[in-house]
Design a protein around this nucleic acid. Structure first.
Lengths: 339, 339
DNA sequence: CTGAAAGCGCTTACAG
DNA sequence: CTGAAAGCGCTTACAG
């Protein structure tokens, strides 16, 4: 079972490589190749299971029919979901996706972008560390099609599909206030990510609007690498300090999970003593004790729109930047103190 | 900022493309190219940010430095984790990974395999639907490097890295029996998947060993597409029948989550009335009410070993098939009735 | 209607 | 120590 090439088919059928190539690319009719010849070629190719070499094809045509996806971490449920939607959508349009995780490392992200370009991807979708302005600028300079998802660069004009982080935590915090909570804490990642900053501001804004003065001591920051260990101390500080909180907003799902673990360990009753809300959720958040109120993001929409925009870009169909800010949804469960 | 090619560098530096290519591929020394020339080339390439075209490179060398990953669903936590480990491992060895989800559709899986070959991947890692014998045979016939993960073909000799499914549910069921349960149910997916069959047999084996006669009425099957809807009925049958169960083993994490939802809806106390064990787990299974005892799989080991074996295969270093069956771990939590 | 030929951007024997 | 040339397997003007 040896591999078959274009020239093998051509020789066997006594036609030229050109003819074979044209027919196999559905350009037979437009080049007026006789039906008979077309049929013979198609039949032979099918029978012998011909598969074109996409490397050669890509090299020759100057495009690879591949799009690159760079995300912080493919193992994170949120990004895994987005990746799934992107792949499905892209596949339907004839594109293959190659992916890599940056693990929030800007340098690694930079290398990944370069590596994707090496591989001649036709376009790029990236959920950036938000610390690679120069790489983003470089992409813009060479007019390379790309769209940012989940995180964008506020002071750069690019295409992006993100979520309204500010509004998300604002709504959630307001809801907590409506439930009578007024000493609301916020647990987030150490600064750096613009998205996290937005979530913090949304939280603060809700407090201020309600006439509650934001308290620095109510904001805890943990590191991405060590949050499991650090969470214990932070939760302790929040619940045991003189100005202990009666609610906590977590800036992302895994922090919420870790936080809930600590609250349980300290025998703090949720939501009675401390209500909990999470930005984004894990699969079983409706089954936890108590079920966790979450600010959920439209992963499928993010994926779908990103691919759509990217396609338009690659086909040169658009000019100007397309900016999409999607709404989050507040899914209310017991952890925030209702009934 | 136009793109730079090999010939541009050659012309600029007054050397041949050969020399440039050799130097850039670290073959300068072995080809005794003068240090001076090497330095000039390296410096120029770096300064002008030269990136080689991997399509051309791959075409020329007959390999793409890419490996393909085909899994049932990238959005599933388990596969997402594996994908993460595979990507990380592969990247470290200079390989890029392209992935696609089969969504348990054998035909789609077949197309995916073909499409990956088109793209000249150097090797393939697949968590198969277990219904594509002929494709697998075809890969073997052309001696193409591939390794199966998670699911294998019992009557085909291939490389694979799987988990001992039989032993997994057996241990778990034995544990339930040790806790005094003797009317143990099993909820799984409609037949087709060999892995699920193994899990069922492990469960039955434990029952038989303990002198408990397996009861057909205690085994429920739901469909992959509609398990959410069907779960209600199945759980109802299990807990409300004349021979109602006092424990349930779920054959996979999302079934366990759905099952627990139904048990709650029916106000069945877990674990008091019905104990629960899940094969595999979701991220928050330690936080659910009650925390769910799980048979966990070593995702990192699966990913790591799969890549290792594949690399050996691609380098032609091995002969014969490498078969790895990894152990699962029983993580005991409250849902199975302890304390 | 169909074919010969150039070209995509690399790598790599081979020759000197 | 270095270069000219062939080749990887396609696509696509161009010519007839």
């Amino acid at each position: 079972m040896k591999r078959l090439f274009l020239k093998d088919i051509a020789k066997e059928l006594n036609v030229s490589k050109t003819t074979v190539s044209l027919v196999l690319n559905n350009k037979g009719d437009e080049n007026k190749i006789s039906q008979d010849t077309q049929q013979r070629i198609l039949a032979y190719a099918k029978e012998h299971n011909y598969v074109p070499n996409q490397l050669a094809r890509g090299l020759s045509r100057g495009k690879s029919e591949t799009i690159g996806l760079i995300i912080p971490n493919i193992s994170d449920v949120f990004y895994a979901r987005i990746a799934g939607f992107i792949e499905r959508q892209a596949k339907g349009l004839g594109y293959t996706v190659i992916f890599s995780s940056s693990y929030e490392d800007p340098q690694k992200e930079g290398e990944l972008i370069k590596s994707m370009l090496d591989r001649q991807v036709d376009g790029l979708i990236v959920a950036s560390t938000q610390k690679n302005q120069s790489e983003i600028d470089a992409l813009k300079n060479i007019n390379f099609p790309f769209v940012l998802i989940d995180r964008h660069y506020p002071d750069r004009e690019t295409d992006y599909v993100i979520v309204d982080n500010f509004e998300g935590t604002k709504k959630a915090t307001e809801h907590l206030i409506d439930q009578g909570r007024n000493k609301i804490g916020f647990v987030t990642l150490k600064p750096g990510l613009e998205v996290m900053q937005q979530r913090l501001v949304g939280y603060q804004d809700a407090l201020i609007n309600a006439g509650i003065k934001p308290d620095k001591n109510h904001v805890s920051e943990v590191s991405r690498e060590n949050f499991m260990e650090e969470m214990g101390l932070e939760i302790k500080k929040l619940v045991e300090s003189s100005s202990s909180v009666d609610a906590i907003v977590f800036s992302t799902h895994y922090l919420a999970a870790a936080g809930l673990r600590e609250l349980k360990r300290l025998n703090v009753e949720v939501p009675k003593e401390v209500a909990v809300v999470s930005f984004d959720e894990l699969n079983a958040f409706d089954l936890t004790d108590p079920p966790i109120t979450s600010i959920t993001q439209p992963a499928s929409e993010i994926g779908r729109q990103a691919v759509d925009i990217l396609m338009d870009k690659m086909e040169g169909k658009t000019n100007g930047s397309i900016e999409r800010i999607l709404e989050t949804k507040l899914t209310i469960r017991k952890s925030c103190g209702v009934a």
